[in-house]
Design a protein around this nucleic acid. Sequence first.
DNA 1: GAGTGGTCTAGACCACTGA
DNA 2: CAGTGGTCTAGACCACTCA
Lengths: 250, 250
Amino acid sequence: MTARARPVPRYVEIRERLESAIVSGEWPPGHRLPSEMQLAEEFGCARMTVSKVVAGLAEAGLVTRRRRAGTFVARPQPQETTLRIHSIPSEVRALGRSYRFEVLSRSERNADPAEAEQLGVRAGTLILALEVLHRADEAPFALEQRIINLKSAPEARAEAFDDEPPGAWLQALLPWTDAEHHILALNADPAIAARLDIAEGSACLRDDRRSWHGGAVVTHVRLTYPGERRLVAHFHAPGGRLKTGGGAAG
Amino acid sequence: MTARARPVPRYVEIRERLESAIVSGEWPPGHRLPSEMQLAEEFGCARMTVSKVVAGLAEAGLVTRRRRAGTFVARPQPQETTLRIHSIPSEVRALGRSYRFEVLSRSERNADPAEAEQLGVRAGTLILALEVLHRADEAPFALEQRIINLKSAPEARAEAFDDEPPGAWLQALLPWTDAEHHILALNADPAIAARLDIAEGSACLRDDRRSWHGGAVVTHVRLTYPGERRLVAHFHAPGGRLKTGGGAAG
DNA sequence: GAGTGGTCTAGACCACTGA
DNA sequence: CAGTGGTCTAGACCACTCA
């Protein structure tokens, strides 16, 4: 009773059939799908095979399932999407431009109240503060102002950041398990304008990011991009699943 | 031989044990995991149970699998994250503020070259152009400039957009299957400054979004937010999986 | 109470590929 | 060629919940 040739797995075919019925509108939102037993009979396979497929559809948000009631085509999701943010070196290289970075300043000190709040620790905690300029084809691409919690990452004290920017170095040492981003626009103050070689007052894109490893805050990084810099993202539904990650355009 | 009480599924426990060994560093990147048979024996369960778990870890990017070679802890992923962008009404309500929108202008016409390029259609295509102001507690929250391809969504001609903003209405009619975002910062020109009630030249956050349904471009929308507006997102690794979607903060 | 999804078992065959 | 992952089967018990 086992299939001889199986070039394409059974569950792929089943998934495609069900997805097609849903996105085509043949099964409109709210429509009840056949039960797992019925589907198994219809496709001539074991119940567990269709079970895995339908569970996958549910995880992707295409259907919702309720015991005893059955499986239903989900209502179209609220307009919601996800935007991928890549590391700066990979962004620059994806643009076909040469990447370089330089450490503008470095200071080891106790966190002042503002820094402590950014990091989510108490004032006085020992930190490493870095200012890094990322360049694309030598032109300023982004200004990075980072503070690192030396309690979480004491290895940073001995690191010169000659080869790798702090972000990549930290990611290799302590990959973040939790992160929080705040993205906003702001007018360049004189300091930022000078660093990024743009006019004072011109619009900039800012990404404030706090990262945890396990329960401990590791770092806070403030990235400031010239305003014309774009975050680009492509998406593919259904289920809000992503097709391609974001590139970038100057 | 079946477990009597199963308050927490077996696979959850197994997944947690494996995840923990990976993120804690007990199994460093490159480490080879026990084979499925060994794991099944170790956990005292069927091979398929651990197989599903490890397949899930692989999908999440925590491990990589090669036939005959085995399963290995993956290298830390490049620093990369996803940012959720919610619909404006839900963003406003998530802030605990009252939501209201008004249609500022509406025009049905043939696309000029610029609009045609935004929409990715040829000039002359019949479009509906809308300007919508979204308000939070009556204060301007975002300016929406939208063009709708009337070839794709002819129903829009008859819609007054009294109850629902165009985004939500379109999403219900033709949920997007593909989308492309461009996010940037810009200085408010006089028109935007007037609409958003902000000073001319102050920084704004812009999201240009083009949406497809199937193969056809349905709409292009340009959202402009006052600069102090924030896009907020929380993430939880491992595997880059999301814990909570983005809220927002003024 | 009956039917649904959720989970699990103890096998099996296969394709692939590194030792 | 032996061991791995990838898939599948034909059962099973359970929790839940709606009719």
